[in-house]
Simulated assay, not measured.
Amino acid sequence: MDKLRLIELFVATCDEGSFAAAARRCHSDPSTVSKAVSRLESQLGCSLFQRSTRQLCITPAGQRYAATVRPLLQQLNACEHALQHLNDAPEGTLRITSAVCYAHLYLQPLLQAFCQRYPAIQLQLDVNDLHQDLIDNDIDVALRTGYIKDSRLVARRLSPMDFLICASPHYLAAHGTPQIAEDFSRHSWIGFRIKQSQQLQPIFLPDRHGHYQLHHLQRQHITDDGETMAAMCADGLGIAQLPHFLARQGLQTGALVSLFPYYRPPQPDNGVFAIYPKRDYLPARVRVFIDFLCAHLDTLGEGSNYTWAEQWPALNNASRASG
């Protein structure tokens, strides 16, 4: 039995006046309480109680010890209650890191409403496309496309990452609309360079049966910024395979059209994830933020296993199949 438990049982005995009453208060049994007090007396080298068959009387040494340890227990209990309240109340500094384009297109538009609902939360935003160590950098939650396997972290998928092959209407008017994968070799293609690996994002195109396959195509233009990629596509510089969150605004305004039904990579790490350190008690500020973000995504037609891209009409309505 640890020292703190011995002290708790000792103070309970002082308050209740008997081992039996102290046992009821501490959800124990009289013999355990009696042995605990005896062990404490042995450690201290003095008697804390005078025992008789009829009563239990505290000694001067016991009074002095109780006067010392009782405030310590009270302070400890008060501290624990305060920490529990801190963990349960949505308050304090919330440190978020997010991929750049996701922060601009999905995170920033909801921040005002989030802060209005939770005014006791202060935000610290780190917007970049690098995978940082959340624990070493004291980050509460990261919003990332994909995730790195780490037993110290929890990765909650906010949505799959669906890809749409897009072009601007005036590009198609000038260069024609490709019908099958082989047609793309005659078109200008905008590529995306992944900052973390410096590799080009692979291109998957549907065959005649709508099954997506990897294709190696020359990229006439390359960028490492997703929003620039979508803007170049809308400006008619070529065709691009865009993640759904980058294609969304252009498709809704008519600046872009989707040439084929969506493609969803089958890998388990495909998607947009909220990543946070694994802990027994998730702070309320983190929990309410993730819940708020998920509710916002639901209004956009996105959830952990679906996106609005599943229903978006395509110029070439081949039957869709994940590669």
Rank of each mutant, 00 (worst) to 15 (best):
C115W: 01
Q132F: 11
H104N: 10
H131K: 02
N77V: 12
L86F: 01
L123R: 03
L111Y: 07
L134E: 00
L76K: 15
S98P: 07
I96W: 06
T93Y: 06
L110T: 05
E80V: 10
I139L: 12
V127S: 04
L105H: 03
N77F: 11
L94D: 05
Q112G: 06
P90G: 03
Q108L: 11
T93R: 10
A82N: 00
D88Y: 08
Q74E: 15
E80H: 05
I121Y: 02
L94K: 07
Q122M: 09
D126S: 10
D138S: 08
P119L: 03
L73T: 02
H85P: 04
D129F: 00
Q84I: 09
D133Y: 02
A82H: 04
I135S: 03
V100N: 12
D138M: 05
Q112V: 14
T93H: 03
L130Y: 11
D126G: 01
A89H: 12
D126K: 01
D140H: 01
D140Y: 00
L76I: 06
C101I: 12
Q132L: 15
D133I: 06
A120G: 02
H81S: 11
F114P: 06
V127R: 00
L123H: 04
T93L: 08
A89K: 09
C79Y: 09
L105K: 09
D136L: 10
L111A: 02
D88L: 14
I135R: 09
L125V: 08
D129C: 08
Q116F: 02
H131D: 15
Y102F: 15
L125A: 00
Q112S: 15
D136F: 03
L76E: 09
C79P: 03
R95K: 11
T97R: 13
Q112L: 12
Y102R: 05
Q84P: 11
Q108K: 01
Y106E: 05
C115S: 14
L76G: 05
P90W: 13
P109Q: 04
Q116L: 11
N77D: 13
Y102L: 13
Q132H: 15
L107Q: 00
N77C: 03
A103Q: 05
Q122T: 12
